[in-house]
Design a protein around this nucleic acid. Structure first.
Lengths: 207, 207, 207, 207
DNA sequence: TATGAATGAGCCTTCATTCAT
DNA sequence: AATGAATGAAGGCTCATTCAT
């Protein structure tokens, strides 16, 4: 049975190899400028081999994103399970989101910055569900702060959305633009802290 | 010389025609789904004619972006020239930035959510410079608020950077994700207003 | 204007070259086993060049057939216009049909022997119309013989169809199988004559 | 040796399973639209397994045709063995031929409306021999009618050839064109009957 | 015997680009 | 200045086939 296991492991490894090569290329060049052949070349396999692991190009991107989001949701759920006080839970989740983006820049940008071409919509249903789950974590966390009187925010739904936009701005700028546009660029820690400060002020943090 | 002038004018007119036809197509279909042929068809010229005005597709795309960002900078300069009170000038500039992104999503993305720097084609040097100019407006405007005591921000450099990140988050989410991830998505106005409110709170707005 | 004419002529010549190379290949190998590349190779042009003359593979086959049938119908119409006595007109038409097949074996087989794959159905509407026209010539001609009392056939519709089947058998066997299956194969003239004799007997030829 | 026998029997059974699965698929989809993979799927074996029973796709296809023509010859021999009166034997054989074509259109076409001889793959030698055998039945049957005075045909060789052409015309039109060319197409029975009537008339049927 | 993994060739088609006119 | 003809490269994908196990 050792044999079967090894094979399964090897198969999974190649799948991962494809996913990571592809996600890198997609982010660097955009969906349309990545060919199955290029992905294959990058991992030194025949192009047709990829089709043994992913039904087509669409499912390949979808696979990349689904994997990444699965991981993010796992982490967020872990935090939620830790029963932290509301504000701490909020901050932990928020930082987790940013960190996730920084750790998986390719996947993050693929899902949140690269507009997914319409043709892929079909295959992205699952991915969107996963994305939504992540965002719902954020929403729940804000709501808990509000109910605990820590936030005086009047419209938690709008706030959740806006906070997400801010997190996204921070994450994606750090990922891809840090220092590129010539603005003096402060330390990563400084800007994350300052951004969260603004968010807390904005939510009317009580104490 | 009347003749030479007319010729020059005509030449310029066609160049503009190409740019605007291409720009329209790009907005409708995304950069990758537009071919030189389609642009040519739209203006009823031969595809090869475009090459008399633009060395290649990259230059055409760069031209479109340069046009757009030129316009943005013009608007920002106009605002700067209006001698508004600092806070109003800041808000006007900021809203102008967001609106620009929404009006020119493809160009915006090409400049600000770009392939990694190394990849940026030769032809985009100039365009990036124009993008940078826009950001410098923002920085100047914040500094003016600070100096006028409207903002109590202690580290204006960090703030400028963070504010830009937030604007970028708002803009790019609206451009490419609004509603796509299944989140209940509030009205565009509401979220822009709320985001700016957070920014102002965060900057310690006085009065 | 000489120049434009020459160009038009050249363009038409290449179109014809493509058509005849393609029809040869299609008949030899069947629709599915002919690639645009092979056609292109055969005439020593780039594959993409073919697309300047035919929108796609389907339209290429359709073009071949439409051309051939146009020619056949032209000939049949000429015969019809000659105002021959009914029996002579019938025979002339019938021989014309066979001769046409023998002169254009590729096109003939492509239309009548190679089953056109369903995918091409769309583009074959025009071709089918042309084919139908040819068959209607035959039907009209039989009907005239019947009305003139030369044929005593009772069901001219069935007869037209059956005669066409016979003509098709004769034509296609001569084209593609003559002598191949090991049967002693008599002279072409002999078998055509004998087949027509059977047809006339079958139609109850009066005198 | 019981073991070896069982193995041999099992081996043969799978071979037959492959042949019949493939045959079905070919009838449904045409030879070109069936892949080794699809055949394998249908019998729930791995694609590579087929190669243990057939050297390649050509051999598989040839096998299918050989099977079919074997069956045809069996039937024709059975008829020949029944000692029917010559005319009845002739008609029975002739109808059997047509029916075979209609039941196995792809195989029929592959053998009788084939690519030019040179192209016929090595693997088809045997199949073509089987086709020839079927035709020889026809020839023998006609000769018997002539010798019995049922046919007054003067040149039996030419007649055999012509009759075959007619049968082939009927068969192949019904197979591939029935109704496709827009002709009002009478019932299959009617046209077969009428065609045979013409043949009999043509052969100078006595009584 | 049977298989799963892998491949290379090939398919239709699109497109940016060149070049002679 | 403008064009039409032509091309080579590339892209997504399928498939027959091989081979180690």
């Amino acid at each position: 049975m050792g044999i079967a296991e090894r094979r399964a492991r090897e198969k999974d490894e190649l799948r991962q190899k494809i996913l990571s090569a592809a996600s890198e290329l997609f982010v660097e060049n955009g969906f349309d400028n990545v060919s199955m052949r290029k992905v294959a070349d990058k991992i030194e396999y025949a192009a047709s081999t990829i089709y043994l692991y992913f039904k087509n190009k669409n499912e390949l991107v979808a696979g990349i994103c689904a994997d990444a989001f699965g991981a993010l949701n796992d982490r967020l759920e872990e935090i939620e399970g830790q029963q932290l006080p509301p504000l701490e839970a909020f901050l932990a989740g928020v930082r987790c989101y940013i960190e996730f983006g920084l750790e998986h820049p390719h996947q993050y940008r693929l899902v949140f910055s690269n507009p997914v071409p319409e043709q892929v919509a079909e295959e992205f249903r699952e991915v969107n569900t996963l994305g939504l789950q992540a965002l719902e974590h954020l929403a729940r966390s804000i709501e808990r702060c509000r109910q605990a009187g820590v936030f005086t925010t009047t419209d938690p739904e709008v706030d959740a959305y806006v906070i997400w936009m801010i997190l996204h701005g921070v994450t994606s700028v750090i990922i891809s633009d840090h220092g590129r546009h010539g603005m003096p660029c402060p330390s990563q820690e400084a800007i994350i802290d300052r951004a969260l400060e603004m968010v807390l002020h904005g939510c009317g943090l009580t104490r």
